[in-house]
Amino acid sequence: MTKQIICINWGRKYGPRYINRLYAGVARNITPPFTFTCFCDNPEGIRPEVRTEPLPELDVEMPTGTQGIWPKARLWSAQLADLEGPVLFMDLDMVVVGNLDGFFEEGEPQDVILARNQSTPFERLGQTSIFRFPVGKLLPLLERFKADPQAVADEYRFEQRFVTRNAPDGIKFWPSGWVRHFRRDCTRPFPLNYFLAPRQPEGARVVIFPGGTLPPHVIAGQFNKYYTTEGPMAHFQGLFSKDRRDPPFRYLRHYIRPADWVGNAWSED
């Protein structure tokens, strides 16, 4: 069976740099045969091994005032180019750190399987950073969303909650430990974050980066774009800056040393 991986890109936030590195991480950690398809609005600069396809049409006005990534609803279409059967969707900002074969072996081909969202431990909520679904199975969700996008977004806030609660036949979760959250599973607690680099979680297959912290940041030793890369002393001095964005203790917790293992995994080679 050919393993089918898809991703999506629109606008200029990510682009070829992220697409090409995600492909390389997949290629290093999967048993062929596999395909890698990117649905995008601009194929320029994307490496030739990546199959590019136009964004699936979604002729609706996107909801406002919500944190969900609702343009992902394009992937719920009846057709995705000429792909058939199960596809594995991967966010562009994740890093592959282990073998991906299990994501195609878990469950049954007709299953919708998501990562468990760690930010809501008391809610059975899926995380759509990496999830598998059969092409066309989520069409009922797309039809409901298109009927009133703003109402759906207002009710569910996040597209992953909408998928979790409404996927036909329900959803399943990946085994615990396969999908790890950088800020929750890799960063060190204060004050160890000033002395030890972020850890690579044992047994992880992918590491996801929600919340504005991205692979280039942590490779450079930067929690996010608002923090310095000039080392622990410069970070500590920033505690006394009038431009500091976070409360003092949160600011101190948000220092990280460079994560070399992320740099090794997030490589285009």
Rank of each mutant, 00 (worst) to 15 (best):
V218T: 03
Q150R: 11
A27S: 08
Q79A: 11
P121F: 03
E57W: 02
D93R: 11
D91L: 14
M233D: 00
F133C: 01
R188A: 10
P191H: 02
Q127R: 07
G11M: 11
I19M: 09
V135A: 14
V135G: 12
N166L: 14
P140N: 12
S129P: 00
G221V: 07
Q110A: 14
P71C: 10
Q160P: 04
D93H: 10
W10N: 01
D148Q: 05
Q127I: 06
V163D: 11
G263W: 00
I46L: 08
W174L: 02
R116S: 03
Y14A: 05
R116G: 00
L214T: 13
E57C: 08
P210H: 03
E61H: 10
I5S: 00
R47G: 13
G68V: 13
G170Q: 08
R250M: 08
R124N: 10
P210G: 04
K13R: 14
T187M: 09
G212N: 08
Y14D: 02
Y156G: 02
G203R: 09
A234Y: 00
P210C: 02
F158Y: 15
I256L: 14
C40R: 08
A73G: 06
E202K: 11
E143F: 02
R183K: 07
F145L: 08
R17N: 14
S119N: 14
Q237V: 11
R183P: 03
D82Y: 04
Y14K: 08
I256C: 15
G177F: 05
E84Y: 11
E268S: 12
D59Y: 04
G238H: 12
P175H: 04
N29F: 02
R17P: 07
Q200N: 04
D246K: 00
K225C: 02
T66S: 15
H181T: 12
T229F: 00
E143Y: 00
H217S: 04
S176F: 04
Y226M: 04
L83R: 12
D243N: 15
N193S: 14
R21P: 07
P210W: 07
R205D: 06
A147Q: 05
R124Q: 13
M94R: 04
S267Y: 03
V135H: 14
R51M: 09
K13S: 09
Y226F: 08
Y227V: 10
N99F: 00
L100A: 11
H181R: 03
R28Q: 10
N117Y: 14
T229M: 04
I6W: 10
L196D: 03
P16F: 03
A73L: 13
F240G: 05
V163F: 14
S77Y: 08
Q110H: 13
S77R: 15
P232K: 11
I69W: 15
F103Q: 05
G212D: 09
R116A: 02
P16I: 04
G98S: 12
N99R: 15
P63N: 06
G212W: 07
V163I: 15
P121M: 03
W178F: 07
F209R: 05
R74G: 07
R244H: 05
I130D: 01
R180M: 11
